[in-house]
């Protein structure tokens, strides 16, 4: 049964308020979701006052500033800081995005930062994506060829066929799209979700792959694929500007026309 409300242990309480000590003029309030697995408490929202003039442009810069200067216990994933690795995916002011690509100058008023939605929280802004990775594994994201062909020859691809992968191969699996999808919230165990389906399509449409039929057969399941109801939160949130909704529709179309 779908649960729209948060369970009792997930209800968010008011947390601490960290006042800026230098009495600076350019204060922005940053509300951050906190949960510590070592304390047996509910999650809470801590508010940090940050001098925005003494901080880099991106939301990730703010988080780094908080971690370095105010509260070193703040936990979040980050690595490349250039929108390539996909580690710092989180929910900023209601929309999933990479915090290293989101400029805080675009946001008027307070900034609200939450972990990716509807996941088990591990600590603070770090959430558990293992279901998604298991689903990714289930679509077998590697090139599969009939043995003979691959033994002695390089498999060539025409420019036209290569072009079909544009808008798909750029995906960095940051999970912004999947965790923005209400359908994935309610059926996350069965529905593969936009990120994994976009990847599935990337291998289905690859001209060098020999198992298109089998691949289509694996995803052609009531909930695995057809859990998509074209809500389009995925496309709206993708920080790389890709279109998972269109990729899913392309799979559906292939199944209907083949």
């Amino acid at each position: 049964m779908v649960q729209f409300n948060l369970p009792k242990n997930s209800k968010i309480l008011k947390g601490n308020y960290f006042k800026d000590k230098n009495e600076s003029q350019n204060i922005k309030k940053i509300n951050v979701y906190r949960w510590d697995p070592d304390k047996k408490e509910n999650p809470k929202i801590d508010t940090f006052e940050v001098d925005i003039k003494k901080c880099g442009n991106k939301v990730l810069d703010i988080l780094n500033k908080i971690k370095n200067e105010i509260d070193p216990s703040l936990t979040y994933r980050r690595s490349c800081a250039h929108g390539v690795c996909g580690s710092c995916a989180m929910n900023v002011n209601g929309i999933n995005t990479l915090s290293c690509m989101k400029s805080h100058k675009d946001i008027k008023g307070d900034i609200n930062i939450y972990p990716l939605p509807h996941l088990k929280v591990i600590k603070d802004l770090v959430a558990d994506l293992s279901t998604l990775y298991r689903q990714y594994e289930s679509i077998e994201p590697w090139l599969k060829t009939k043995e003979k062909k691959s033994k002695n020859f390089e498999i060539n691809q025409s420019k036209k066929d290569r072009k079909k992968l544009d808008g798909l191969y750029e995906c960095i699996m940051c999970a912004c799209c999947s965790t923005s999808c209400p359908s994935y919230w309610w059926n996350g165990e069965k529905y593969l979700g936009p990120a994994v389906l976009l990847q599935a399509y990337r291998w289905i449409i690859d001209s060098r792959d020999d198992e298109r039929k089998e691949r289509l057969k694996t995803v052609a399941d009531k909930l695995k694929l057809y859990g998509c109801h074209t809500i389009m939160n995925c496309t709206n949130s993708c920080p790389k500007g890709l279109n998972p909704a269109k990729a899913i529709s392309s799979i559906k179309k292939m199944l209907a026309t083949n």
Partner: peptide, 19 residues
């Protein structure tokens, strides 16, 4: 572990609202 907030915090788009 708690579940991160979803409906409670996610911003509405035209597409999701019409859906």
């Amino acid at each position: 572990n708690p579940i991160s907030p979803h409906l409670q915090i996610y911003a509405w788009h035209i597409s999701s609202l019409l859906s």
